[in-house]
Design a protein around this nucleic acid. Structure first.
Lengths: 223, 223
DNA sequence: CGCGACACTTGAACGTGTTCAACTTCGATG
DNA sequence: CATCGAAGTTGAACACGTTCAAGTGTCGCG
C-alpha cells in the first residue's frame, strides 16, 4: 500500500545498519569504524551490511544527507527577517558551520573519500545530485529573499556561484584546526561583505561585461 | 665522501622500488598497483618496500614532484616572448594540462589521497610547502613578466590568487572525462580573458576597494 | 682474525574492505 | 495446503596495506 515499503524486515535491517554506522562514526571516526563493528552493533552479519550498503562509503551518505537537511532547516529559520544579501549569506554560511561543528573531527577523515572523483560522495557525482541541488537551493533562498538590486541573469547565476564559494569554505573548514573553527567563522565574517560589494559593483559599466562573461562561462561549462 | 650516499646497496633498492612503482602506476593506475607487485618488480621483498617508503602514498610523492618540475620547465619555455598577462597565464595553465595529461587517468585515483587533510600530499600540508611555493613561483613569473598595469599590492597578491585558480582548474580537470581533457582546455581558454578583464578593471574607482578588501582578507587568513 | 653495531632484508601474520555461493524466510500462486 | 521464487541472511574466503620479530650482510675497530 505505502509506496516504499518493500518489506518490514528489510527496512528494519537497513535502518539498524545506518544507525549503527552513524553511532560508530561519531564515537571513533571513519577510519576506526570497521564494517564488522557496524554489523555487530546493528545485530546483523557482515555480509548483510553489504546487502544494503554496497560499500563503506555509502554508509557516509546518510551523514551527508543529515547535515544537509539540518543546515536547510536551521538556515531557513535564521534567514527570517533578514533582507540584506550579505546578512542572509552570512547567516546561511554560519548556520552550516554550526550544524557541521560536531562532526568536524571526523569530517576530515571522510573528506578524502568525498574528494575521490569516482566516489558516490563526491559533490559532483550523480548520486550527490539531490544533495547538491538542495544546497544550491539554500543559496537560491538567500538570493531571492534579499533586496539586492541585481540584473536578472546575475540573480539566476548567483545561487550556484555562492554554492561554489561554500565549497571553498568547506575546504578551509576541513583544514581549520582552531577552537570551534573560529578561523573559518572569521573568514566568513570578513568574506561576506566582500561578496556584498562585488554584487553591488556588478552593475557598474566596466564591470558588467566581466560578470556576463563569467556567467556565460559557467553555463557553457556545466555538464 | 659524497654527502648523501648512505650506502650503495641501499640507494639502489630505493631507486628500484620508486621506479617500479612509477611504472606500475602508469600501467595499471594507483588502486590496481599493489605493494606486492611493486616489490616483485623491484626485485625486493614486500617488507623491504616499506623500509624505504613508509606507505603506498609516499610512493606517489615522486610523481607529484616530477609533474611540478616538468611544469616549471615547460611553462618557463612557453612564457618566453609573451607579454600580455592573459597570454602568459593561458600558456602556463595549458602547459600544466599538457604535462599532466599522461597521468590523468590515475591522477584521479590518487587525488583523493592528496585531498586528505592529514596526508603529506595535501597541497596545504607542511611537507608540500616546497612544491606549493614552486607552483606559486610559476605564477609570480607569469605576473612579473607581464605588461599588466596593476597596483603594487595587486601585483604582490596575484600569484597566490592565480595558484588558487589553478587548484580549481585541477579540480575540474580531475573530473574531466573528455578526450585529451578538451573541456578543461576550453575552460582555460575562456577563463583567461575573464581574468584579464578583472585585472584591467581592478583599478576602477568602485572596484579598487573590493580588491584591496580581498587582498587584506587573504593576508589575514594565511596561517 | 673476531666481534659488535648497524644498515638492510625477509616473509609470515594481522586486520581490513569486499565478494560470493549457499542457506533461510516468507508471501503469493496454483 | 504445497510449492516456487524473490528477498533477505550468513560466514567463510580473498586480496590488500601494513607491521614486526627475526635474519643476513658489511664495515670498522681491537
Amino acid at each position: 500500500m505505502s509506496e516504499a515499503a518493500k518489506s518490514e524486515r528489510g527496512e528494519q535491517s537497513r535502518l539498524a545498519i545506518a544507525a549503527a554506522a552513524q553511532e560508530l562514526f561519531l564515537e571513533r571516526g571513519y577510519d576506526k569504524t570497521t564494517m564488522r563493528a557496524v554489523a555487530e552493533r546493528a545485530g546483523v552479519s557482515l555480509g548483510n551490511a553489504y546487502y544494503y550498503f554496497s560499500s563503506k562509503e555509502h554508509l557516509v551518505q546518510a551523514f551527508y544527507d543529515g547535515i544537509q537537511a539540518s543546515h536547510a532547516e536551521v538556515a531557513v529559520r535564521r534567514l527570517d527577517g533578514r533582507v540584506a544579501l550579505g546578512d542572509r549569506l552570512g547567516a546561511a554560511l554560519i548556520a552550516w558551520i554550526d550544524v557541521a561543528e560536531p562532526f568536524h573531527e571526523f569530517a576530515a577523515q571522510f573528506f578524502k573519500v568525498a574528494a575521490d572523483p569516482g566516489s558516490p560522495l563526491s559533490p559532483f557525482s550523480p548520486e550527490s545530485a539531490p544533495a547538491r541541488d538542495a544546497a544550491v537551493g539554500i543559496h537560491r533562498l538567500v538570493v531571492e529573499g534579499s533586496d539586492a538590486k541585481v540584473t536578472k541573469d546575475v540573480r539566476a547565476a548567483l545561487p550556484e556561484l555562492l554554492w561554489m564559494l561554500q565549497m571553498g569554505i568547506v575546504l578551509f573548514w576541513v583544514h581549520d584546526q582552531s577552537e570551534g573553527q573560529a578561523r573559518t567563522r572569521e573568514l566568513v565574517q570578513r568574506l561576506v561583505p566582500v561578496v556584498d560589494k562585488v554584487v553591488k559593483v556588478s552593475r557598474l559599466p566596466g564591470v558588467k561585461g566581466v560578470i556576463t562573461d563569467l556567467i556565460d562561462l559557467l553555463d557553457a561549462m556545466r555538464p
